[in-house]
Every structure is written in structure tokens, then in C-alpha cells.
């Protein structure tokens, strides 16, 4: 039986889709904010792997085919960007100010907390790129001498966290402009936050997509400077 799962290509994919579907269903039926479909599906997947004592590699053997689609799907974020380009042009100053302030907040907030917790340089630089998209963040971490595996994990956790609490944070801070909502979600929690922005609306989704690109590039510029400080 175990051999079967080891060779199965569709097990990981099916588990991912089914658990996500279950997450969507639970959210509809119970109408609880905490029942974020992405979070629910991750929890179900982890429980299945732990309870059945299945190696992550076996699950990933099939699930990698979903990850394979991530680059083409990210490329498609150009579509909402193109459709909302007029709004983007009208709000250039606000968008740039928002993303730049977000990146600087991220880096200085991490610096301050690392100092408070007395964490070492290697842990610090592993955390610096935590709000940007995984592929850029891994590169930044490696360049600065961080633990790339920790950076990758923190980036993903940040994304999921942003996706789960995004709507609540926007509500608490009275962020109501669709453009501002998109910038907030994309700058704080990259592509996984952008998935939430897409659910909120086309404008939110387009602006979050733009934020992934710009916050990633701005972080590449500023992270080495911050790395010198501690």
C-alpha cells in the first residue's frame, strides 16, 4: 500500500484540491472569518501527513505538479495589471509612497524586534526579506548569508498569515480605498496576500500584483543596507 502512495502522482494533487474545496465549503457553511480556505487546507494536509506518518517527499511527489503551475499563474497577474492600468497611472504617487513606506516599515520593524529579542545576525538577515515573493526573498537571504530554508518558511508563513488576517487588519485601520487595500495586501504578504486581494476585487488584485514586483525590487536594494546595521 505504501509503495502505491510512493508512486502515486495524483495523491498529492487530489489531497490539495480536496482540502481546499473543503475549506471553501466550511467557510460558506459556517461563515467564520478564521476558516480561511487556504489555512484550513494547509492544516488538513499537515494532519493527513502526520497521522498517516507519510513522508513529505511522498506527498510532494504528486503535489509538485501544482507548484509547477505557480510561475505561469504568477505571469498571468499581468492580466489584471493591464486591465486596471488607467487606475494605476492615476495613482502613481500614492502607489509608490505606499509601497516604499511598507518596505521600509518591514525592514525597520524586523531590525527593532531582532534587537529586542537579541537574535543573531544570521537570524536577522534570514528574516529581512520575509514580506517579499519567495523566489526573490531566497536570493536576498542567500546573498546576505542567511538560512535560506528559514527564509522560505517565514515568507510562506507571512503570506498565509497576511491572507488570513488581511481583511481584518484593513477593517481595523479603516483602509477602504481599493487601491490602498491592494497595496497593503501585496506589500505585506506577496503572492499569497495577492490571492486574497483577487477575492476582494479586480482593482485590489491588480494593485497587489504590482506591489509584489515593486516591493521585491525595492527590498533587493534596501536589505543589504539594513544588513550592515546589526
Amino acid at each position: 500500500m505504501n509503495h502505491f502512495f510512493e508512486d502515486s502522482v495524483f495523491f498529492g494533487v487530489t489531497l490539495s484540491f480536496l482540502s481546499y474545496g473543503l475549506g471553501v465549503l466550511l467557510k460558506k457553511k459556517l461563515k467564520l472569518g478564521i476558516l480561511n480556505p487556504l489555512l484550513v487546507s494547509i492544516v488538513i494536509t499537515v494532519i493527513v501527513l502526520v497521522v498517516t506518518d507519510m513522508d513529505y517527499e511522498i506527498y510532494y511527489n504528486g503535489a509538485k505538479y501544482i507548484s509547477y503551475l505557480l510561475t505561469p499563474a504568477t505571469v498571468c497577474l499581468a492580466i489584471p495589471l493591464y486591465e486596471q492600468f488607467e487606475i494605476l497611472k492615476k495613482n502613481v504617487a500614492a502607489i509608490l509612497a505606499g509601497i516604499l513606506s511598507g518596505v521600509l516599515t518591514s525592514l525597520s520593524c524586523i531590525l527593532a524586534m531582532v534587537l529586542i529579542f537579541n537574535m543573531n545576525h544570521k537570524q536577522y538577515v534570514s528574516l529581512l526579506p520575509k514580506s517579499i515573493t519567495t523566489a526573490i526573498g531566497m536570493g536576498v537571504s542567500e546573498e546576505l548569508g542567511g538560512y535560506v530554508a528559514i527564509t522560505t518558511a517565514i515568507i510562506i508563513i507571512t503570506g498565509v498569515f497576511g491572507n488570513v488576517i488581511g481583511e481584518f487588519v484593513l477593517y481595523i485601520f479603516r483602509i477602504k480605498e481599493p487601491v490602498a487595500k491592494g497595496i497593503a495586501l501585496g506589500t505585506a504578504s506577496h503572492a499569497i496576500g495577492t490571492a486574497k486581494a483577487m477575492e476582494l476585487g479586480e482593482i485590489e488584485g491588480a494593485l497587489a500584483s504590482l506591489s509584489i514586483i515593486l516591493s521585491g525590487i525595492i527590498t533587493v536594494g534596501f536589505a543589504p543596507v539594513f544588513a550592515q546595521i546589526h
Binding site: G12, S16, F17, S19, Y20, P37, L38, S41, I42, T45, V46, L49, Y56, Y59, Y60, A63, K64, I66, S67, L69, L70, A73, T74, T134, T152, A153, I156, I157, G159, V160, N163, A191, I192, A195, M198
Partner: peptide, 11 residues
């Protein structure tokens, strides 16, 4: 797209 993040998150 959200489904595509599940494998990495479980990782």
C-alpha cells in the same frame, strides 16, 4: 492560485 501554495506551506 491559492491551491498552489499548499505544498510549499505544508513543507
Amino acid at each position: 492560485m491559492p491551491v498552489m501554495f499548499i505544498p510549499a506551506a505544508a513543507g
